[in-house]
C-alpha cells in the first residue's frame, strides 16, 4: 500500500507540477492586460522557458563533468595537503552571492548567454565539488583496506566501491547545484542572457502582475520539479 503510494508519487508530482505550470501559463496569457499582451504570448513563453532550461542544463552538466572528477582527484592521498586549501576556497566562494558572481563575469566577458553559462557553471561547481570530496572522504578506510586486501585494483575499487558508496552524497550536491542554478538563471536576465527572469524583470518595470507571475510561477515550478526529481534519484539509485 505504502510502496504503491510512493510509486504513484513519483509520477504524480511531475504531473501536478506540469499541470500547474500549463494552467498558470494559459491563465495569465489568456487574461493578459493590453500592455503585457504583446509580450505574453505562447511563443515567447516557450522561448524564455527554453532559454532557462538551456542555461540550467548546459551549466549543470558541465559543472558535473568538471566537479566530480576534480572532487575525486583531490580526495586521493597524493592531494591531501592541497585538499583543505581547495575546501577553504570553495567555502568562501559559496558565500559570494550569485548576483555578484554574474555581475563580475559580465564585467569580464560582457553581456550574453555565454557569460551567464560560465557564471552558473562556476557557481554550481562548488556544491558538487564539496559533496564529491566529502562523499569520498566519508568512506571508512577499512572498506578500502578490505577491497585492496581482496586483490581489487585501484580503478576497480573506485568504480565498484567508492563511487557507489559516495553516490548519495554526490547526488545531494548535484541537487543543490541544479536548484541554485534554476534560481540564479532567473538573474541571467540582468546580463542579457534571457530566461524566465526576462518576464519577472520586465513585469516589475512595467508593473504588469501577470507577466511577473508567469515568470515566477514557471521558475518556481521548475525548481521544485528538479528538486523533486533529483531527490528521487538520490534515494533510488
Amino acid at each position: 500500500m505504502w510502496r504503491k503510494l510512493n510509486r504513484l508519487r513519483t509520477v504524480l508530482v511531475p504531473v501536478i507540477l506540469l499541470a500547474a505550470g500549463v494552467s498558470a501559463t494559459v491563465y495569465f496569457v489568456e487574461n493578459a492586460t493590453p500592455m503585457a499582451a504583446r509580450l505574453l504570448v505562447y511563443p515567447n513563453v516557450l522561448r524564455v522557458l527554453g532559454q532557462h532550461l538551456l542555461l540550467v542544463l548546459v551549466s549543470s552538466l558541465l559543472a558535473i563533468a568538471a566537479a566530480v572528477p576534480l572532487g575525486i582527484i583531490i580526495s586521493r592521498p597524493a592531494f591531501r595537503p592541497v585538499a583543505p586549501v581547495i575546501e577553504g576556497i570553495v567555502n568562501i566562494g559559496q558565500t559570494v552571492p550569485s548576483l555578484a558572481v554574474l555581475a563580475l563575469f559580465m564585467t569580464l566577458f560582457g553581456l550574453g548567454f555565454q557569460t551567464a553559462v560560465f557564471a552558473l557553471w562556476l557557481y554550481s561547481l562548488l556544491p558538487i565539488l564539496r559533496n564529491t570530496y566529502a562523499g569520498m572522504k566519508s568512506i571508512g578506510p577499512e572498506i578500502i583496506e578490505a577491497a585492496r586486501g581482496m586483490g581489487m585494483k585501484a580503478h576497480r575499487i573506485l568504480s565498484r566501491i567508492e563511487l557507489p558508496l559516495a553516490f548519495p552524497i554526490i547526488m545531494a550536491g548535484i541537487r543543490t547545484a541544479v536548484v541554485i542554478n534554476v534560481g540564479t538563471a532567473t538573474l541571467a536576465s540582468f546580463i542579457g542572457a534571457g530566461g524566465l527572469g526576462d518576464f519577472i524583470v520586465t513585469g516589475i518595470s512595467l508593473r504588469r502582475t501577470e507577466l511577473i507571475y508567469t515568470g515566477a510561477a514557471l521558475s518556481a515550478l521548475l525548481a521544485i520539479f528538479f528538486d523533486d526529481l533529483l531527490a528521487r534519484l538520490e534515494k533510488y539509485v
Binding site: 532567473t186 524583470v201 515568470g215
Partner: peptide, 18 residues
C-alpha cells in the same frame, strides 16, 4: 519550508511584489 527554499529568489520577490 523545503519548497519555499527551492523557489528562486527572483520568483519569490515577483510573487510578493504585487
Amino acid at each position: 519550508c523545503q519548497i519555499l527554499m527551492t523557489v528562486p529568489s527572483m520568483a519569490m520577490f515577483g510573487i510578493l511584489l504585487p
